[in-house]
Amino acid sequence: MKQPDNTRRKPPEHLPIILFADWLVNGQTGLSSMSIVSHVTGNPCHGFFKGLPNDFAPLDYGDFDRCVRLIKAVPLVRPHLHVMRDVSDEWKRIIDRFDELETAYKDTDGEDADSRRRFSTLLSSIRHPDNEGTK
């Protein structure tokens, strides 16, 4: 007789919040980058969100820029980004196409409004594929 599988799936390993201390104090933070910190550390960040949900996905170039800056500041985040796939459908689509977005981000001239707008349109089309990139 086959024994039932009583093993439980081990929760994803969380990163220690202390790794983010310098970024939290000195970095450029935003709701989407703080959402990443919240989920990869397992800390709800109640003080920062002040009652808001912590599932904010980047809306535009500036938001994505802050997420990339977070990853540069704390490189250990990158292998943990997969946890964001479970946060929302928008995050799932962003993480599934993160390499494409990161390449487009690197090709964007952050000083040029048209360049930032093109990136934001791509990001919006990924977040909301049914709207074909419109906000």
Rank of each mutant, 00 (worst) to 15 (best):
G110Q: 07
D89T: 00
V25N: 04
S115G: 03
M1R: 14
E102M: 13
E132K: 15
T108L: 03
S35L: 08
W91G: 04
L52G: 06
H82E: 14
R127P: 03
S35Q: 06
F98G: 10
R116I: 02
P129H: 08
I95D: 00
T103Y: 09
A57S: 15
A73P: 09
M1A: 14
H128I: 05
V37P: 02
T41K: 14
A104I: 03
D114H: 12
S88L: 13
L19D: 09
R127T: 00
G133M: 00
K72C: 03
K106Y: 02
E100D: 15
S33T: 13
D22H: 11
P79R: 07
V68N: 01
T134Y: 14
D89N: 10
P11A: 07
I95A: 05
M34A: 04
M1V: 14
N26Q: 04
C45D: 00
N43A: 06
D22P: 03
K50H: 08
D65I: 00
F56R: 06
G133Q: 08
P53G: 09
W23M: 06
P79Q: 09
L123Y: 02
P4D: 01
E102N: 14
K135L: 12
H128G: 07
W23D: 05
P53D: 11
P11M: 04
F20R: 12
F119G: 01
G42R: 12
A104G: 08
L31N: 06
L24G: 07
I95G: 06
N6Y: 10
S120V: 00
Y61F: 13
D60N: 07
K106N: 10
P12F: 01
G47H: 13
D112K: 13
L81W: 11
W91V: 06
L81S: 12
R9N: 11
K92S: 04
Y61M: 05
